[in-house]
């Protein structure tokens, strides 16, 4: 690791000029874009359904639900933390709305606000515990994950006597809410779900925040070198707790999108998805160690997952291939990340 070895030996201490390939690979999302294109072409050519309007809207819908969450998880990862409770959160928020509207007759809009407040409070709780104790967020949110998973089942069963919400579509105001969270509209011959619009908005918003606001600068800083960030006056606690709350808020959004699409929610909803969000973010170029990544990359990661998930169905393969494929993608992405980081980033 001798910096001078590759420095052009000019008169001054000029730094090494990276090659065009490295410069391009420094963009966190380039690898994911290439992979997404390859998968798109593969399934378009190998199946009949993939490129039809119905096919496209199916995998776009699937991608959008993972995508909203993956973008939030990516922000959190760039900020140097994990949230394993993100999957269970989509179930918790859906169940809150489902239970208190169908069982107790609470106004549906109010129920949604209550669910959002609960989600943000849990997110803030995760953040405070992580920041105050210095425990790894992996452990803290693993605990939250199990707590939520248990509560989702136990409380739902206790109140409703079953493990799924029924009769939600009969709740007053359901149709009005469905317009925002569960409707679909014609677009280029497709029947596109509204969740795709949410996904696009979230990606654009997250990209703006990350690259063009103070908050974005702070997110990169607290994830990249928390001590340095603190020394430079970055509000570390506020930034990290805010990120946990954003992730929980995204969990709420996905919970609503699922709830109003199918009009029901299972008590096990979201369990097992937390790692998929992290995988989407990593495939999209986020470093597990924080300080590097992009919202657009995470969206591409979700697109890859959504396309593969539905593509395998269209190709009528055994669904178990998905997991093997996902593992392979993850490994590949991590290796690419490692290479990029060595070339472009950290030299200690």
């Amino acid at each position: 690791m001798t910096p001078t070895a590759t420095v052009s030996q000019g008169a001054d201490e000029r730094i090494r000029k990276a090659g065009p390939l490295i410069t391009m690979l420094r963009r966190p999302e380039v690898g994911a874009a290439v992979a997404a294109l390859a998968i798109f072409l593969f399934f378009s050519l190998s199946t009949q359904t993939f490129l039809t309007p119905a096919g496209v809207s199916t995998w776009l819908y699937s991608s959008s639900l993972f995508g909203v969450m993956a973008v939030a998880v990516a922000l959190l990862m760039i900020g140097g933390e994990f949230d394993l409770s993100a999957g269970a959160m989509t179930g918790t928020t859906g169940l809150i709305v489902g239970v208190i509207t169908t069982e107790w007759g609470v106004n549906i809009w109010l129920a949604m606000v209550i669910a959002l407040v609960v989600a943000l409070a849990i997110g803030a709780g995760n953040g405070y515990i992580v920041m105050r104790t210095g425990l790894p967020s992996f452990i803290v949110t693993l605990a939250t994950f199990f707590i939520l998973q248990g509560l989702n089942l136990a409380v739902t069963k206790q109140i409703t006597g079953t493990v799924a919400i029924q009769g939600l579509s009969a709740v007053p105001g359901f149709d009005a809410v469905k317009i925002f969270f569960g409707s679909s509209f014609p677009f280029l011959g497709m029947d596109l779900k509204i969740s795709v619009v949410w996904w696009v908005i979230i990606v654009a918003l997250a990209t703006w925040v990350l690259l063009r606001t103070k908050a974005g600068n702070w997110i990169f800083a607290v994830g990249g070198a928390v001590a340095s960030a603190r020394e430079m006056g970055v509000p570390v606690l506020k930034t990290k707790v805010g990120l946990f709350m954003v992730t929980a808020g995204a969990g709420w959004l996905v919970g609503m999108l699922q709830l109003f699409d199918v009009s029901t929610v299972q008590a096990t909803t979201g369990i097992g998805q937390e790692f998929i969000y992290i995988i989407c973010a990593v495939v999209g170029g986020c470093l597990l160690t924080g300080g590097y990544g992009s919202a657009f990359g995470a969206a591409l990661g979700a697109l890859i997952y959504g396309m593969t998930l539905q593509g395998i169905v269209f190709a009528q393969w055994d669904n178990n291939w998905l997991k093997a494929f996902l593992g392979g993608m993850l490994l590949l992405a991590v290796l690419v990340n490692l290479y990029v980081r060595r070339q472009a980033g950290v030299r200690s």
Binding site: W218, A229, G291, R347
Partner: peptide
């Protein structure tokens, strides 16, 4: 200026330069 320099290695020079005192 302490030994750790309070810089974030993965961030661009200009973002480091203005870290915590960003111009908007």
């Amino acid at each position: 200026v302490y030994q750790d320099l309070a810089v974030v290695p993965l961030m661009p020079v200009w973002r480091n330069f203005f870290l915590g005192s960003e111009l908007t």
